[in-house]
Amino acid sequence: MTQYSGKALVALILLAPVAALTADPSPGRSRDLVRMVRQDCGSCHGLTLKGGLGPPLLPETLREKPAESLRYTVLLGRPGTPMPPWNAFLTEAEADWIVRQLIAGFPEETR
């Protein structure tokens, strides 16, 4: 088992939320995230994000909702609905980035 020093742990805990709010994913990772949202989220929300079994993810439908709750919906899912948690595949920072892009108007895939 890995041992962390107390100081390092405190530093990690303090740094984590700051990183979550500011860091953008690398260009390669953001390309993967765009593809994942368009294609895999798209199987329920539609490639154009106009909705399907899941609700639309367009700016006009999301703007009213607090970004914080959207982030937790992405990471933890919504019990009682088919929305699954994606936290095994996304960091909090990446979920934040996806939510910001959705609210701003989600990018198209580049090839």
Partner: peptide, 14 residues
């Protein structure tokens, strides 16, 4: 009750 009350895994596609 095929899941026998066990928690199911997250479903990423229907």
């Amino acid at each position: 009750n095929y899941g026998k009350g066990q928690e199911k895994l997250p479903v990423f596609k229907m």
